[in-house]
Every structure is written in structure tokens, then in C-alpha cells.
């Protein structure tokens, strides 16, 4: 069952276009709430099919230096959980699908049912949960069913075939394949394990598998687009925003969007 805004529709469409989806991550509140919303709109203008709206967290165990720094800055500026929803709405209004990416305690404290309700009301498609595995997710499974939201869990190169099948079965929209055993951050090379992980996750029953962690250049995006349903870029966009502002986000997004269409030049 998918909600009316499920990201699954995006994958149907891009498949018809013979390409992969481009998914860009930006945290709310960096460098401030208003600019982060502008940056999200720029990301959509540049060609993002799905925007991951990140919630800064005091203890981001899965994030590398660039996203940690952005989160620390946003928290120091006073960003609140409720600031997510206007950013989600801006992405939906701009014509892309919005999913939130948040560590679980943030959602838990907001109230799982209330979070699902407010996310759906803002036009959001679902939630990526980097530190919530399906084994612990009974409350979220119920709330996401009630509001027709995508449940985007992660799989990793260390996941056993049993866990891949279990995670695929509980996912909706797409499965987030963490390409490498490590944290977020731009890398020179996307791990070779990523292609195998995508193949294994599909074999375990997943419809749509997107690859994140380490993708930063249009050439890498093109390479990953060759085997995955979607390409997720985070740290490189956050760095672009920090160094060159909203315009730099739009420019990099444009190059990455060309990349997933196999038009990367570099």
C-alpha cells in the first residue's frame, strides 16, 4: 500500500524516462531556517526528484564532518523540529517529493503519531530513519500506515540476506542502500560494494533501491545511476551551500541531475 504522495511514483516515472532518480539532502536550519528553505527550492529547480529534509541532532552518530558541522550550526541558531514542516511544504510546492531524514529520538519526542500527521499534512512523502531498524519500529509502522507515508529503512554491506529480506518487506517507497561501511561524507570513489548491495537488496524483494554515502560528483552520480534506482547526494550539497550559497546548490544540483541522466561530462 502506498500513500498518495509515495516516492514510489517517482521511480515509476524515471524508469519510463530511462534514468535514475536524483535525491538531494539538505538539513533544515542551515545556515538558518529561511536560507535552508531557499536552498531546498534551488535543489528542486536544479533537478532533484526527491529532497531529503534533514533534522539536525545533537548526537548524529552516522554523520561525517560536513553534516555534523551543519547540524551543530543549525542547532546553535535554534532550529526546532517543527521547522521541518515548512521546508517539506516548500519542496512539495516546488514540484518534488519531500522525505524527512531524522534520528529516531527526535521523532519519538515529537510524538510518532503526531509527527506522521504533521508530515503528511505538509505534503511529505515519508521518513528515512538512519537509526531505527524495523525490529524496533512497531509504533512507526502503525503511524506510517495510518497516514500513508513511506518507510525508508537503511541496508548496509554487512546486512545478511535474512536482514535484507526483512528490511525490504517492511520498507515502502524505496530502500536506502548505505554504499559503504562508514559515515556520510564525500569520497573519491563510491565503494564497489554498492552495486552488489543493490543487486542483493533487489533479490531480497525491494522494488526501488537508492544508493547514498559517498556520492559527490556528477561522474559518480552517473556511475551509480547505472545500477541503482536513485542516487542520493548529501555532504557535497551541504558543502556547496556553506561555501557558495543557494546558487551553488542549484548549480551542483543541475550537474548531478545531468549525471543521473548519463550526461555527466566529468
Amino acid at each position: 500500500m502506498s500513500g498518495t504522495h509515495s516516492t514510489a511514483e517517482v521511480f515509476t516515472r524515471v524508469r519510463q524516462e530511462g534514468r535514475a532518480a536524483f535525491i538531494g539532502y539538505l538539513p533544515v536550519g542551515y545556515p538558518d531556517v529561511a536560507t535552508s528553505i531557499e536552498a531546498a527550492r534551488a535543489l528542486v529547480r536544479g533537478g532533484a526528484d526527491i529532497v531529503e529534509v534533514g533534522m539536525p541532532y545533537s548526537d548524529p552518530g552516522m554523520d561525517g564532518g560536513i553534516i555534523q558541522h551543519a547540524g551543530t550550526t543549525a542547532l546553535a541558531e535554534g532550529v526546532r523540529t517543527r521547522d521541518l514542516f515548512p521546508m517539506v511544504e516548500a519542496v512539495a510546492d516546488a514540484g518534488a517529493r519531500a522525505v524527512v531524514m531524522s534520528y529516531w529520538n527526535i521523532v519519538y519526542q515529537y510524538g510518532v503519531e503526531r509527527f506522521a500527521r504533521d508530515l503528511a499534512a505538509a505534503g511529505g512523502s515519508g521518513l528515512i530513519t538512519p537509526d531505527l531498524i524495523p525490529d524496533e519500529a512497531a509504533e512507526w509502522e502503525a503511524a506510517s500506515d495510518a497516514y500513508g507515508l513511506d518507510r525508508i529503512y537503511l541496508v548496509a554491506p554487512s546486512s545478511t540476506p535474512e536482514r535484507l529480506a526483512y528490511t525490504a518487506e517492511h520498507s515502502r517507497g524505496f530502500v536506502y542502500a548505505a554504499s559503504t561501511m562508514g559515515v556520510t561524507g564525500a569520497r573519491a570513489e563510491v565503494d564497489q560494494a554498492a552495486a552488489q548491495l543493490v543487486a542483493d537488496t533487489r533479490a531480497a524483494g525491494a522494488q526501488n533501491v537508492c544508493v547514498g554515502l559517498g556520492v559527490s560528483t556528477p561522474a559518480q552520480a552517473a556511475e551509480v545511476a547505472g545500477y541503482a534506482d536513485g542516487v542520493i547526494v548529501g555532504s557535497a550539497l551541504v558543502r556547496a551551500l556553506g561555501e557558495g550559497g543557494v546558487e551553488a546548490v542549484e548549480e551542483l544540483a543541475g550537474a548531478l541531475a545531468a549525471g543521473v541522466r548519463g550526461k555527466a561530462t566529468a
Partner: peptide
């Protein structure tokens, strides 16, 4: 409450 990468 950890990333899937650590479960194994």
C-alpha cells in the same frame, strides 16, 4: 536504536 550497518 542503531544504524543497520552495526546490526551484524
Amino acid at each position: 536504536f542503531v544504524p543497520e550497518a552495526l546490526i551484524a
